[in-house]
């Protein structure tokens, strides 16, 4: 490597490090504020002079009027349920579209792809009225069902199933395997990495969604974590930033864990499809 390239490389490292500080600083500041007593919140110190857990105990104490634990459980339950349903539904659909032949296959595939460009705002009002008519507003149904129509996942797994070698399928058919077994015993095990990516991205999308839970739930008990943070930010914790940052920190912990343990799946899913859910 010539000296000029070496200088360029280290210049890149310096620039990237400065940028990385800007990326990380807001998060560090959030953690710092969350562990500060309320009187110190505005002191401007990055390292808290007094470290306290009082903000966290205040958040989870039942007396504060907030039901943070309930919101967290709601978000996790809804996110996991949707992820599992989507992985099953989309895997079956993608398998049939990619590997089986039937009338209307092409039409269905084009509809799936076209639906990716429909903005959520166009669905918001009719979806709300649909669930209001079914008397399902403010229940788990309204928080789960709309997300099960996940065209993105069909698209993602479709591309994966196309790449399975034909010989593998033919060998299985020779052995007298039926279509369902072909899907369950061959396609599903092969697609575990792709399905895991889909499951994670779906969980992230549902856990982080704000607009739909905001309009479709009203009672304190049915709120999700994202809506809870917003409610407290404009309500009780409006100027109490120690409490608000402690709550915000709690709200992002599941996603930070997902980031730590499954970053590769997340980034691969994004890199291969480029589609934001």
């Amino acid at each position: 490597m010539n000296p000029k390239t070496r200088i360029t490389r280290w210049l890149a490292v310096i620039l990237l490090s400065v940028g990385a500080l800007f990326m990380l600083f807001p998060l560090v500041w959030m953690v710092s504020t969350a562990f500060k007593p309320q009187v110190d919140a505005f002191d401007g110190h990055l390292i808290p002079t007094h470290i306290t857990l009082a903000n966290f105990s205040a958040i989870f104490s039942s007396g504060s009027g907030a039901s943070v634990l309930r919101w967290l459980v709601n978000s996790l339950f809804v996110g996991v349920t949707v992820a599992v349903l989507v992985m099953i539904i989309d895997s079956m659909a993608a398998f049939a579209l990619a590997r089986l032949k039937f009338f209307g296959r092409r039409v269905i595939f084009y509809i799936v792809v076209a639906s990716l460009v429909v903005p959520f705002i166009a669905l918001l009002i009719p979806l709300y009225l649909e669930f209001a008519g079914a008397n399902m507003l403010d229940t788990y149904w309204v928080l789960i069902l709309p997300y099960t129509a996940n065209a993105f996942g069909v698209f993602l797994l479709y591309q994966f199933f196309l790449s399975i070698p034909k010989e593998l399928e033919e060998a299985a058919v020779m052995d007298g395997v039926n279509k369902f077994q072909l899907w369950w015993r061959i396609a599903v095990p092969l697609s575990i990495p792709a399905s895991a990516t889909l499951g994670l991205l779906t969980f992230m999308n549902v856990y982080n969604d704000f607009f739909w839970p905001l309009v479709s739930t009203t009672s304190q008990d049915m709120r999700t974590m994202t809506v809870g943070v917003q409610l407290m930010a404009v309500g009780q914790y409006n100027t109490n930033y120690s409490l608000l940052m402690a709550l915000t920190l709690c709200s992002v912990i599941p996603m930070l864990l997902a980031f730590l343990f499954a970053q590769k799946q997340l980034t691969q899913g994004i890199a291969t499809t480029g589609i934001n859910l």
Partner: peptide, 18 residues
């Protein structure tokens, strides 16, 4: 650089409002 992408929009806005 990817880290903030996994955060919810309400977490990000409450953090930046502060």
């Amino acid at each position: 650089y990817f880290l903030p992408t996994v955060l919810s929009v309400t977490a990000v806005t409450s953090l930046w409002t502060w």
